[in-house]
Nucleic acid binder design. Structure first.
Length: 766
DNA sequence: ACTAATGTCCTTTTT
DNA sequence: GGACATTAGT
């Protein structure tokens, strides 16, 4: 119920002292956090306690009390979160200025250094690249690129992923587990590497604790990682982990470190529970001589352990930054009391952290579903349904009903553990023509054809980018991995010697020919003896790359960051597409659909001011929703939100539905190995539930289809998630699935019929 | 020696 | 739909 009285109350509060309107409507704790003068501050903020609002208010307060916006560093968990936060800061600062006349501060939000650790690292490292001995033009590679590059290194070292041991002995069967398992595949290798780097843990320890079946390969892995590092370095590539590693290295430099630190009067970190030890080290480096640091977090919402995040960062904060003030926000402004009661019960079963009990506060009034009729006393719903099919139908029906009641689709979200859990729902939504957008899961950028196209641009940007070359060369007819290897080696040899040895000093020593020299070098590649079937394609490729290299030179003379440069990236994409279109059509089916993705990509490129920025932005902030780019624009401007729970972090909706609340899905079968993993799954479930403002529905199918190689339709019975034991489930209203009722009816009807038939048969002989 | 096509198994979460 | 192994074909 939206009591108009609440609105009035807020309006009264808003009439605050001029210059302090950013503090309006904050409760005592929030206000204390926002106005904390200086020194370390830890804000423990439970779900829905106005954490974002408080942090934004704090930034606004710092600006209002004289801190220059560009001297504030705001580290967030995702780029979207940064954007959201900064626009709030913008609003607060602007309203502050209503009474003043300092128009210069209106753009405060733009001037704050805001972004993810990775995005900020990218920005800083471009500035400090030269003295750090990095090529300022370094390319940032994403995880799949990293895997491919590592694979090349592995091949070179002769570490075959194919198991040699399996033919030696049938060692699987007998209990002697001493036989070495086969070498881990590239994805596993990168996971191991990444954990070592982010957690600051030695390989042996990581293997022992998380990958015991690979422990026999520790030495080989270390050699592999070393080769991988060298490969990256000589090709001017940084992976996502490197961004943090180099940032931390930057902070340790006796000259540069203090210089970076002195740029920022205040450092603020959101979602601190999901940072890792490396990120903590960066913060320690940033605040050696200035203790102005604010971190916000909730240990009950730590869900990124798989990425080496650790709650220890929060728990250690007071030790890391002595004299820290701790403020706890416990008043929940998001959810109705019955929802809160249920979510509190779920998290109460978790192992101890910073204990806090969320109390209901006054409901917020900025909901988009203002007019909707909501019963604030309604308990959340727990629906046991027949199967996933039935679940999908129920979810669609309920969403449409809520829409009728005035809750727009975009104020409703369906959350799930793994991206594919929404597959059936997506089909059902498509069938009923309900628009939706899906967040999380497979990325637009992971689509093969998108990677193909980007690879051309990456070569143009950084001709030593081996993975990009490899990918592109393999596209040509008659060239497989073997030949591609040779071609790429040759390319490397041709480009390697720095063309201008008189270049000033060692900063030039990265073998990165620029401009026309590069074009000339590319020309020299045209003669390389590729296999006959590939000859024509090869010539076309070299011509294309030559054009891209030339184009970028001319353009860079013209531009200097003007909007015209966007047109350049777009026109480069057109050049590439002219060459790539036939390959695409030949290689993939549904080429028309894929071509649309490339259209979308070209559209995104228009927003970028340079090719380098375009490529870096794409890897640091990949378009996260299908529909962000792809697909036709939605006509009615309304869509149901589908999201993985991880991607839903920090967000909230009026109505939330959680799918597949069954053991095996939540917690995931893959994450029940040890207590720590299972506890993280519990927190994940908690995060999902606490996204709901007014309506919460938990769906739990009774059966799941099992893909079994048999003609019969097999299924398993799934128990309700272990995170809803009897005592907790009691806080939910039991929902009904008509399909189940129908099943029952059918069954009893069948039984009745059978009885009648039997009676008739017997009657015949009476 | 290499590519291209076919078959089988597995599939978490993300900057 | 991807990763990897096997096989047919050049």
């Amino acid at each position: 119920m939206e009591a108009p009285a609440t609105v009035t109350t807020n309006a009264t509060n808003t009439r605050a002292v001029p210059g302090e309107s950013h503090l309006a409507g904050l409760n005592a704790e929030q206000r204390a956090a926002a106005t904390h003068p200086s020194g370390p501050l830890l804000i423990i903020a439970g779900a829905g306690t106005g954490k974002t609002r408080t942090l934004a208010a704090r930034v606004a307060h710092l600006v209002a009390t004289g801190t220059a916006p560009e001297r504030i560093l705001l580290l967030t968990f995702s780029r979207a979160a940064a954007k959201e936060m900064l626009s709030r800061v913008e609003g607060a600062c602007a309203s502050n200025l209503a009474g003043h006349n300092r128009a210069g501060e209106v753009r405060a939000g733009d001037r704050v250094w805001g972004g993810t650790f990775h995005a900020i690292a990218n920005r800083l490292l471009r500035i400090y690249a030269e003295p750090m001995g990095l090529a300022p033009t370094f390319t940032v590679i994403d995880r799949t690129d990293a895997e491919d590059l590592l694979d090349l290194a592995r091949e070179e070292l002769g570490l075959e992923s194919r198991g040699l041991e399996s033919q030696a002995l049938g060692s699987r069967a007998d209990a002697g587990a001493s036989a070495p398992a086969r070498f881990p595949r590239k994805a596993t290798c990168i996971s191991i590497y990444s954990r070592c780097v982010n957690a600051g843990e030695p390989v042996e320890s990581v293997l022992q604790h998380r990958y015991p079946w690979v422990s026999g390969h520790a030495a080989a892995l270390k050699a592999l990682f070393k080769a991988y590092e060298q490969r990256k370095h000589s090709r001017s590539l940084l992976d996502l982990d490197d961004l943090l590693v180099w940032w931390q290295g930057l902070m340790e430099d006796p000259e540069l470190g203090p210089d970076v630190a002195s740029r920022f009067d205040h450092v603020l970190v959101d979602e601190y529970q999901d940072t890792n030890r490396l990120q903590r080290a960066i913060l320690l480096g940033l605040r050696k001589s200035n203790a102005n640091i604010t971190v916000v977090g909730d240990d009950a919402q730590a869900i990124y352990g798989f990425r080496a995040a650790t709650v220890r960062n929060i728990l250690d904060f007071e030790r890391d930054f002595p004299g820290a003030r701790v403020v706890t926000l416990e008043q929940n402004y998001r959810s109705t009391a019955p929802i809160l009661e249920a979510t509190n019960a779920v998290i109460a079963l978790a192992r101890e952290g910073y204990r806090k009990e969320l109390r209901p506060g006054a409901p917020r009034t900025d909901s988009a579903a203002r007019g909707a009729v909501v019963n604030a006393d309604a308990r959340p719903l727990l629906v046991r349904c027949r199967d996933e099919q039935s679940q999908a139908q129920l979810v669609v029906r309920a969403a449409l009903e809520r829409l009728e009641q005035g809750v727009p689709l975009r104020c409703q979200a369906v959350l799930f553990r793994a991206a594919h859990h929404s597959d059936l729902l997506e089909v059902e939504l498509g069938r009923r023509r309900v628009p939706f957008r899906k967040f999380g899961g497979l990325r637009f950028l992971d689509a093969a054809h998108v990677k193909d196209l980007l690879a051309f641009l990456r070569i143009a940007e950084n001709p030593t980018d081996e993975t990009a070359w490899f990918r592109v060369v393999k596209l040509l007819d008659g060239i497989g991995p073997r030949t591609a290897r040779k071609v790429v080696d040759h390319v490397g040899r041709t480009l390697e010697p720095a063309p201008r040895p008189e270049g000033h000093g060692r900063s030039e020593g990265h073998g990165r020919p620029e401009g026309r020299d590069r074009a000339a070098l590319l020309g020299a590649l045209a003669d390389f003896p590729v296999p006959a079937p590939a000859r024509e394609g090869w010539r076309g490729l070299v011509t294309l790359l030559g054009r891209l290299a030339r184009g970028s030179t001319d353009a860079s003379v013209l531009r200097e960051g003007t909007s015209e440069a966007g047109a350049t990236v777009t026109s480069e994409i057109e050049l590439v597409r002219a060459f790539y279109a036939p390959l695409l059509a030949e290689r993939y089916d549904r080429a028309d659909v894929r071509a649309q993705d490339l259209d979308a990509l070209a559209r995104v490129a228009q927003a970028s001011s340079s090719r380098r920025e375009f490529l870096a932005d794409l890897t640091l902030d990949p378009p996260s929703a299908t529909g962000d780019l792809a697909g036709p624009p939605v006509l009615d401007e309304d869509w149901l939100v589908l999201s993985t729970i991880h991607s839903a972090k920090g967000l909230e909706w009026d109505a939330v539905t959680v799918l597949n609340a069954a053991d095996g899905c939540i917690p995931s079968d893959l994450a029940t190995g040890d207590v720590e993993d299972t506890e993280e799954e519990r927190r994940l479930f908690y995060v999902a539930l606490t996204r709901a403002r007014r309506s919460l529905t938990v769906m739990a199918p009774l059966r799941f289809h099992v893909r079994d190689r048999g003609p019969t339709d097999r299924h398993t019975l799934a128990p309700l998630t272990r995170f809803l034991p009897e005592g907790v489930a009691r806080l939910f209203e039991a929902g009904t699935d008509p399909a189940l009722a129908a099943d029952e009816a059918k069954k009893s009807a069948g039984a009745r019929t059978a009885q009648e038939v039997r009676a008739r048969i017997l009657k015949r002989w009476e």
